[in-house]
Design a protein around this nucleic acid. Structure first.
Ligand SMILES: [Mn+2]
Ligand SMILES: [Mn+2]
Ligand SMILES: [Zn+2]
Ligand SMILES: [Zn+2]
Lengths: 154, 154
DNA sequence: CCCTCGATGATAACGGCTCTCACCAGGGCT
DNA sequence: AGCCCTGGTGAGAGCCGTTATCATCGAGGG
């Protein structure tokens, strides 16, 4: 696992999977949906609906904010994106890979930066706890708050 | 650990600690603050600001919603309450015990119920992960989503 | 081509939260 | 006890992310 440049965590594999899923569910091909999926596929970490809207507009695409929320909602219901709630009343969204790697976030309360991380043992513990509750846990939201590595050493 | 009735997780110990902290910080004694603390001390689990407001009003207390948020904000900054974000754009709050037990929540996406749980090993893993990031982690928010024990077995 | 119905986007509405500001009252002082 | 200053309070307006509405557009099967 040497030093190949960090390819986007969400390659075109995810995008293809999403488009196939939409087709399979009998959805029609719409411009807004395609372009939101396209943008999400290029990201390494979560974006808010407003950020998605702004970037698409900046790229000359005349999407409506309602369409952005609509598509994100559909994707979330189909388990194709993960809704990330870092507090502050804003939801963020990122591609969710079928059975694959997912990560969590540390939010720096000083500079606002969002740092992604993943940890195998932590996931195992989360699974164990879910089972011990007798519940069928479909997802877990985890956010660490504090001072990021940069902010904490000054 | 036999069957003694489940005493409130937040006895008067917490309340005393909070009042002492406020006095120590040079705050004046205000009616709204006292009554919000009082109510929080009686709870076993988290309440939203609106719920706190409604209950106080129902009890004949003429508090303002602004005061509720103000007090909750002060308490959160003094680390005397934990802000719990279970999604849906509503923050919930519960008493935080100095160095003691804290718990997390499972939210049933079917019936909306909120189930509290605590787990020592999970906390240890969370600590380890925080350290491995080089960050100074002050708090962590964890919410499990899925079907609760009742809803999952039908 | 046409026609139907899902998709889209401008806009209004909604709700949680925050801000503003005039009034209230704790408590140090005399 | 009475004053006064200042922090505490609460009604209401405002802010902002999200959701609902609805007229219009266009994908795609006939
Ligand atoms: Mn995880
Ligand atoms: Mn914990
Ligand atoms: Zn930082
Ligand atoms: Zn349930």
């Amino acid at each position: 696992m040497a030093a190949h440049a960090h390819t986007h965590a969400t390659g075109s594999g995810w995008k293809q999977h999403v488009l196939a899923s939409f087709a399979h569910e009998g959805f029609r091909a719409g411009g807004a949906r395609a372009v939101v999926v396209e943008l999400l596929a290029e990201q390494d970490c979560c974006l808010s609906a407003q950020e998605i809207f702004d970037r698409l507009r900046a790229g000359g695409r005349k999407v409506g904010i309602a369409s952005v929320y609509r598509v994100l909602d559909q994707l979330a219901q189909m388990q194709l994106v993960q809704r990330v709630d870092v507090g502050g009343g804003v939801s963020r969204f990122e591609a969710a890979h079928p059975g694959g790697d997912h990560h969590h976030h540390l939010v720096c309360d000083d500079c606002g930066r969002v740092v992604a991380f993943e940890d195998e043992r932590l996931e195992a513990e989360l699974d164990r706890v879910g089972k011990s509750l007798g519940a069928r846990v479909a997802a877990h939201d985890l956010v660490l708050h504090g001072a990021c590595a940069d902010c904490s050493q000054k």
